[in-house]
Each structure stands twice: as C-alpha cells, then as structure tokens.
Nucleic acid binder design. Sequence first.
DNA 1: CGCTTAATTGAGAGCCTTCAATCATCGTGG
DNA 2: CCACGATGATTGAAGGCTCTCAATTAAGCG
Lengths: 228, 228
Amino acid sequence: MAASGTLDIFLRSTFGVEPGSHVGRELRDLSNEIALKKGKTAPLDHSINLTVYLASGATKLVAHAKGGREQIVAFHFGGDIISVPADAMHASSLVALKDSLLIVFPSREFYDRGASEPAILRPLLDRAQTALHRCRDKAVGLGRKNARERVASFLLSMAERMESVEEEALVLDLPMSRRDIADSLGLTIETVSRQFGELRDAGLVLTGGRSRVRLCDPAALADMAGHF
Amino acid sequence: MAASGTLDIFLRSTFGVEPGSHVGRELRDLSNEIALKKGKTAPLDHSINLTVYLASGATKLVAHAKGGREQIVAFHFGGDIISVPADAMHASSLVALKDSLLIVFPSREFYDRGASEPAILRPLLDRAQTALHRCRDKAVGLGRKNARERVASFLLSMAERMESVEEEALVLDLPMSRRDIADSLGLTIETVSRQFGELRDAGLVLTGGRSRVRLCDPAALADMAGHF
DNA sequence: CGCTTAATTGAGAGCCTTCAATCATCGTGG
DNA sequence: CCACGATGATTGAAGGCTCTCAATTAAGCG
C-alpha cells in the first residue's frame, strides 16, 4: 500500500478521482509502490494480471521465449499505464530503462473497484485500445517489414512519444540500448547498428554518443517506414 | 440501426443488459448490422475507431503496408468483439472467412453510452486485454520464432479457439487459407506449406483437403512452439 | 586516465523468399 | 455422377536479407 503523493497525482490526473474518496481509498489499499533503478527488473507477482502506472522514468516489457530469446513487447514512459499479463505461453518481465517509479495494482481487483466508478474504467479502456493498436502496428513491422523500415518506423514512433531535446530540431535521447532496439524490432544488435550507419550515411539521421539521435529528415524517414 | 434479435442476444449474453432498457435502446440506435459473405470485405467507416461484434462466422483483421504487403493482425470467431482502428500508419480491413454476421458500433459513442453502465465497460476492458495479450504473443512469434515454431504455435492457438470436428481427437476445420495463415505468421504461402509437409512427415499432424487438420500429438507441437 | 561495456564493422552461413512448375481440390456444368 | 476448369496448395531450385561469429573501435564510468 502506497503512502506518498504519487498515487494521488495518478488518481487525479488520470481518472479525475479524489484520493480521499471511497474509490480513492480502496485503490490506495490495492496499490504497491516500487522505486526501480535503471536496469533492474520489477519484482512482480506473475501469477496474476497486473496493471502498473509508470509515474516517472521509462520501462520495457519483455516477453521471454524458449532458448533465451527475448522480444520487447512495448516501451513505456512517464504517465503510461502498463498491462503486465500473468505468465502464459510467454513469461514477461518489466525492466527499467531509467530510474523509475511504479505503482502496481492487481488488475482484477483494480477493475472491480473501478467498476462502480465509470471515470476509472473509461480511461483504462482507452489506454488498452491505444496499447492494442500500437502492438498491432508493431506486428505489421515484425511480420512484413525489412530492417530499414523497422528502424525508420521505430525512430518516428519514439519521436512521437518522447520530448525532443532541442527546440527547433528533432533530437532524441533514447533511453534504450541497441540491444533493446533490436529486441523490440525482432532484429540483432548488428543489424540495427548497420541500419543506423546507413541512415547516417544517407544524411537522414545524426548520432551522438550512445543515446543521442537527431532526425534530420523526418519526412524521408516516414517515407521509408513502409506505412501505407 | 439494427432491428433483428441478434443485437438482443449480444446485449444479454455479453453485458447482461436488457435490450429494452435505456442503454439497450441507446446502443441499438448506434448499431449497424452487416451480413458479410465469405471473402467479402466489410464496408466500414475507417475514419473512426469501430467496435464490431461478430455474432456468427469468422473474420480476419488485415493491416496493409506499403507495396501491397498484408499482415493479418487477428482472427475472430463467433462471439468475439473486434476493435477496428481508424486508419493511421496502416490501413486495416475486416474480411469474412465464412459467411458472417456483424454488428458495428462507433467506439467513442459506444463507450460514452456504456460509461453510465459499468456492466458495459468492464467486459469491454477484459476483451481488450485479451486481444492485447494475444497480439503480444503474436509479436513474440513474428519477432523471435522460426517458421516451424510459428506454424506449431498457430495450430495450437486455433485448437484453443475453435471447436474440434471429432470428439476424441483434435481435428480442426480451418476457415482460413494457406495465404491467410502465411499473412498471419509473417511468412509466405510456400513456407507455410513446407512446414505443414514436414509436420505431416513427422507424424504430428494429418491434413485432409484444404482446411482439415488433425493434431495427432499436441504435446509435441507445444514443445516445438517455442513457448517459454 | 584506464578499464569495462556497448557499438561498429566485416566475412561467411543459414533460413526464408522468390520464381517457376506441377499437382490437388472443389465448385460448376454437362 | 462425372468431367472439367479455376483456384489453391505443394514441391523444387536459386537468390537475398538477416544472423552468426569474430575483431575492432568507441563510449562512459570510476
């Protein structure tokens, strides 16, 4: 059960619910606040579906397949709501890309408490739809696009979801490593690196350090992303 | 606006809502019933998000990428609720695999009407979660599994969702073509066909005609599906 | 400033795709 | 009921894109 003001902010900003209200107190009782250091895996109960609010930071949701293979199923940023499924065909784990603050709820109880309060369920439903649509777009990339298109697509989607470092230009400070990008795009580190290189050679992006990427020509990137 | 009893069944079985109630009548006003012949694409308004109830039959949701590439994002069977997104990065279309009966709602209005009635939103949220989890499992397959694992995985997931033709044995009557399977698994028709052949040679499945598949050894299939 | 880890770059192999031909299935019409 | 035609499925050979393995370079932290 969380005690800090993080939950209060969550309840107010996402649902418009007063922390002191009946639902507010019920949800507080369900909640579990976790501060997660960069690179650490959240210690979660994987026997049930979980709903996680990412108050701050960035995370990746990783699905594990046989043979140590990993597929990153989604990235998350501050304010996102994450659905962590109970272990089924693939086990999953939630890992911090930066120091992060999580609030964890058991989904079933969360939905049950929220059922009386439409203000709860509606935003959750909208978020779930968004997550579903993102996952489908990812599936299209994984199933039908080549490495070039996947990387271009990835950069554009990150540009949509992250703040640009500079005012005038699109400069991203990617919190994830090349391995993370590869695991998200269904590629290898080497292939991702080669694609970055070719995009750089083509003048479409500039890279600085390990995490900095400048999108010089977003239109050209969009053109090669393979979107319909 | 639909007039038949199909909507009534939907409201009662899925939400426990009486068709004659206030919400029931509101939802009826929003609804649009479509009978779709096998192979036909549903004539939908792709400028907004849609929520579709598949009363009977089977459908595929196809996402289109540049160059005529298609990725089947999900299959659906009678009783399923389908979320059809407004055209964004990828246009999508809903196609009948068998003669099907659909009830179409604009998502926003549907959710708005349902917001007053928690019995509506909760099942929708659960369905959305299920769809999300399925899509993630698909993403793992598309990103990290070889052809063999994808086909084995596909057969098992179909076995979970469809009725077996025979009592004792797992015999499926697949409504989708090899092309559909390929478009769902991110492979080509030829590769899918070769995998079926090898599975047959290995004694794991038996095929009869174009659509009949008998799963002789589900355990062995599960073992080669690459699930964690 | 040095060390550890991540990223880049190169060469060769593998899995799936592409292209092409043959075969089977199933709906249709005689 | 069977022959026929059209579409779908199977099978084969060659090529391509990404992976794997290996070495080098760069980045970032102590």
